[in-house]
């Protein structure tokens, strides 16, 4: 399986390439002042407003820096009956990796989005579970 590698402060998080719609470069986002902290803003994605999550903010409690390699991964977030387009902003998205072995299963209460880990080329790659990237409360904050 091909995983898109999202690096946040040297840590690698893998996202299944099949769940990725597109990777876009970093652009200016429309700020939502009343929104939750982890929401970086709204992206004008080809004429459609897409909420963008700041993964660094969510994981490291620090906003992403504005760099060339900072990219927004457009995904289809599954929500009960339908999928919703969501942007995931990560500090460094420059490579994809093909993972052949199984992820060792992992279940963390504080980080439910981590679906396991695997060692790839000497580095640990965490598997991001897209469905659990937002806690129900967070999902409620974003999508209502």
């Amino acid at each position: 399986m091909l995983y898109l590698v999202l690096e946040i402060d040297g840590e690698c998080y893998g996202l299944n390439a099949l769940s990725v719609t597109e990777v876009t470069p970093l652009v200016e986002l429309e700020q939502i002042h009343e929104g939750p902290e982890f929401l970086a803003g709204l992206l004008n994605y080809r004429g459609r407003p897409v909420p963008v999550l700041d993964l660094r903010r969510m994981i490291k409690k620090k906003p992403c820096e504005k760099r060339y390699c900072t990219r927004i991964v457009i995904v289809e977030y599954p929500r009960t009956t339908k999928t919703l387009t969501l942007g995931l902003m990560a500090q460094k998205v420059v490579r994809s990796v093909r993972v052949t072995q199984e992820f060792s299963p992992m279940e963390l209460r504080n980080a439910p989005y981590l679906g396991g880990a695997v060692v790839e080329r000497g580095r640990i790659l965490h598997c991001l579970t897209l469905e659990k990237i937002l806690s129900p409360q967070q999902a409620l904050e974003v999508f209502g």
Binding site: L2, L4, A17, V20, E22, V23, T24, P25, R71, V93, V94, R95, S96
Partner: peptide, 8 residues
């Protein structure tokens, strides 16, 4: 970026 999208 193009290569990433292409690989996806």
């Amino acid at each position: 970026l193009l290569s990433l999208n292409a690989s996806i």
